[in-house]
Design a protein around this nucleic acid. Sequence first.
DNA 1: AGTAGTGTGTCATACATAGTACACGCTCAT
DNA 2: ATGAGCGTGTACTATGTATGACACACTACT
Lengths: 127, 127
Amino acid sequence: MTHYSHLRLAMPQFGTTARQIRERLRESDRRFSLRQVARRVGVEPAYLSKIERGVVAPPSEATTVRLARELGQDPDVFLAMAGKVSSDLQEIIRRRPKLFAELIRQLREAPDEAIFRVVRVVRDGDW
Amino acid sequence: MTHYSHLRLAMPQFGTTARQIRERLRESDRRFSLRQVARRVGVEPAYLSKIERGVVAPPSEATTVRLARELGQDPDVFLAMAGKVSSDLQEIIRRRPKLFAELIRQLREAPDEAIFRVVRVVRDGDW
DNA sequence: AGTAGTGTGTCATACATAGTACACGCTCAT
DNA sequence: ATGAGCGTGTACTATGTATGACACACTACT
């Protein structure tokens, strides 16, 4: 396995977490074996095995999202663990780069609560 | 050049824009020849030539930012034209994926003015 | 005892990314 | 006329990304 050791294991957490979630689901539903999940997600079992153990980097965005859905998780959170940001979010930012760059940097240190307040204000639109 | 034709020329605008900006700068300052800019940016002239003509995809994030700076442009805007989002913005999002995903999607259709108002409110912090 | 299912090791591959190196022909000031 | 600087064509390369294919050993029924 030495020849995989060069890859940026930015998030060894990704595989570990995915495995934990899958194994917990499996306790009550044997359809959550590695092989069966791999099949439903559309990858080879050997590949999913390597992903879960962190032998390879997290998969592509599309595969990550399918895996998240299969495991009942939030795709954005799974993508974050995989070191990625959803391409649809990226596209929104790219359309108005200055505006969004400033907003996001502005909120870098803001407490969760402050961001959530902004979300609510924008959602309810009464302002 | 047919063997380059397969690449996703997502943004042929990138090269064209970069070239226009450089040529305008050059009118008043001959240090903005392709060769000299390439040198300062740290790439081969042939490569910059291909970038400007859209023969190759836009360069890496680092190179794009150096080029933007050299041409006096906003790096975030240049990155957006290159089809990318600055990795520091991505990292901010990845730290709190749910919060930022919801915020950004919420603002997808919002008018510039509304986003700017949010920025201002957050910046001034008096709320 | 056999078969079905399970996780994993090894090997190979196709394509994308991000450039470098060199040579050519043109133009322009000296 | 010549050398410096210019933009560009062609060829090449190194590394990363994202998997697939196959074989093996183990376990768990039937």
